[in-house]
């Protein structure tokens, strides 16, 4: 099963469960009074929470992305050293 199918499958399963419990189209009354009303906006809540979670994660990782200044400086020094050494060994650029 591809990841797309798995994703659609779980979304469908969730959707059916939500519809039965929150909308009760078949009039089965699976849950007592306040619960269907509480569950109705659940998908919207989940969507918004996931959006917030994503923004928070990307934002945090953006802020903590290492800049590696030391690595860049070290590389510059090594390039200088390499050029000298290679010239001594007879490399013509």
């Amino acid at each position: 099963m591809t990841k797309l199918l798995r994703c659609l499958w779980s979304l469908g399963l969730f959707g059916v469960a939500w519809a039965v419990l929150a909308l009760d189209p078949l009039d089965l009354r699976p849950l007592p009074a306040p619960w269907p009303q509480v569950l109705r906006p659940l998908p919207a809540y989940l969507l918004v929470s996931f959006g917030c979670f994503s923004l928070a994660v990307v934002g945090f990782r953006l802020g903590t992305f290492n800049d590696c200044e030391a690595a860049a400086q070290e590389l510059q020094d090594q390039i200088r050293e390499a050029k000298q050494d290679l010239a001594r060994r007879g490399l013509r650029l």
Binding site: V58, L62, F65, N66, D67, C68, E69, A71, A72
Partner: peptide, 13 residues
């Protein structure tokens, strides 16, 4: 300790 050097904010984002 991984990271990048020489990227602006847009590229990092």
């Amino acid at each position: 300790n991984g990271g990048v050097h020489g990227w602006d904010l847009k590229r990092k984002l």
